[in-house]
Simulated scan of single mutants.
Amino acid sequence: MEEQDFINDLRAGKQFAYGKLLDLFQQKVFATCISFVPNKEDAEDIAQDVFVEVFNSINKFKGNSKLSTWIYRITTNKCLEFIRKKNTKKRFAFLQSIMGNEIPMDKTKYFTEMNHPGVLLENKQKSETLFKAINQLPRCPACGFYA
Rank of each mutant, 00 (worst) to 15 (best):
G63Y: 08
D49Y: 03
K89V: 10
K14F: 08
N77G: 13
I98D: 02
D106T: 00
P141K: 11
F131R: 09
R84F: 02
S57F: 11
L137D: 07
N115G: 05
C33V: 03
V50A: 03
T108P: 01
E122H: 09
G118M: 10
E81A: 11
N56E: 15
K126Q: 09
I134N: 07
E3Q: 14
K78R: 10
E2Y: 10
A17K: 01
Y72C: 08
K28F: 01
Y72N: 12
V50T: 02
T75D: 05
S57W: 06
Q27L: 09
A142F: 11
I74H: 05
T129G: 09
T112V: 10
I58K: 02
K20T: 12
A31S: 15
L22S: 00
F55C: 11
S65I: 06
K132R: 14
L137C: 12
Y110P: 08
F51D: 06
Y146D: 04
K78W: 00
F25Y: 14
F92Y: 03
F131E: 10
H116K: 12
K60M: 11
V50S: 03
E3R: 08
Q96I: 08
L22W: 00
N56Y: 12
Y18P: 01
N77I: 09
L120Y: 01
E3D: 14
E113W: 12
G19S: 07
D49C: 04
S57Q: 13
E44A: 10
F61M: 08
N39W: 03
R91L: 13
I71N: 04
G19A: 04
N56T: 13
L130A: 07
C33M: 05
V29S: 01
Y146H: 13
T69E: 08
E3L: 08
A17S: 05
K86V: 00
Q136D: 15
L67A: 06
F111W: 07
T32D: 05
V50F: 05
K62R: 14
F30S: 01
L22D: 00
L137I: 06
L22I: 04
G63F: 08
N39P: 01
P117L: 02
L10K: 08
E41Q: 15
N135I: 07
E122D: 13
T32I: 12
E81Y: 09
K132Y: 12
T32Y: 04
Q26N: 11
F61W: 09
F94K: 06
L80I: 13
K107T: 15
T75C: 07
A47Q: 05
A93H: 06
V50R: 03
R84L: 06
F82Y: 15
V50I: 02
E81C: 09
Y18N: 04
K124T: 11
C79A: 07
K14Q: 14
F92W: 00
M105P: 02
K90L: 11
R91S: 13
E41N: 13
S57Y: 11
M99Y: 14
I58Q: 04
Q96M: 10
N77A: 12
S35A: 14
E113M: 14
K109V: 12
Y146G: 07
P117I: 03
T129I: 15
Q4S: 13
L121R: 11
K107Y: 06
F92A: 06
Q15H: 10
P138Y: 04
E2S: 12
K20L: 15
A133L: 14
Q136I: 07
G144W: 01
F16G: 10
N56I: 05
E41K: 14
A12P: 02
T108Q: 10
I71D: 07
C140I: 03
F30R: 00
F94C: 04
G13H: 01
K20E: 14
K89N: 09
T32W: 00
